[in-house]
Amino acid sequence: MSDVTVAVKDAKPTADGVMVDVHGVHKNFGPLQVLRGVDLTVRAGEVTVVLGPSGSGKSTLLRTINHLEKVDRGWISIDGELIGYRRSGSKLHELKEKDVLRQRTHIGFVFQNFNLFPHLTVLDNLIEAPVSALRRPRKEAEETARRLLERVGLADKTNAYPRQLSGGQQQRVAIARALALEPKVLLFDEPTSALDPELVGEVLDVIKDLARTGTTMIVVTHEIGFAREVADTVVFMDDGVVVEQGPPSAVLDSPQHERTRAFLSKVL
């Protein structure tokens, strides 16, 4: 990867250094309890990798963090700001859509299947949100976009359309698009699961590069090797709860819980 550095918003954590705070989050889809009291803290500049079997609620957790899903109970805060709600006294008031959208500009989200805008060029994909949501001047947004594209190694694809790119390239554009808002935290939902094996590396390299420069990230993935190398904390989820969390060496090499061991024996 290129070694151009881009200032992702300075990690300016709250007094205790917590950037993301997930507290007692419950989420049901009808009768199905998908999250059953999830607690999670991510400190500024740290990388948290979330592991867990299919259907354990990993995607749902990420989606509640940027309020794509409403929580039924519990709360989430980013950099000390409550997500999706305003607190007054003992009540939580739901925020208007406009305010939720503003909050989301602080939270980058990278989807499993990229979700690039196919009718816009790579450059326009990157500047759309800074220009329309943050009201950045177009020129300034373009400069940032070009720097980010250089950083993810796609400076030559500025004017291409997403469908003209390989999967790995598309995902790198999607990462650059999320970075263009200079978010406080980046959320990745299985960023490499839709990719052919030989393309996984190039995307993971970009994420590793971000980790080195102190970007706060939560990454849902099945790449155990990546977790071991990059994660500050590994979280193992099953059946809507966090079963176990800790440094990679602890969780991956000497798991305390039977469910963690069972899962790891299957994926390793």
Binding site: L101, F109, N115, A129
Partner: peptide
């Protein structure tokens, strides 16, 4: 559907 979701995740205003 992912297109709207991506736009919402980026905080793009609703009308836009």
């Amino acid at each position: 559907h992912g297109q709207l979701e991506a736009a919402a995740a980026l905080g793009i205003p609703r009308l836009r």
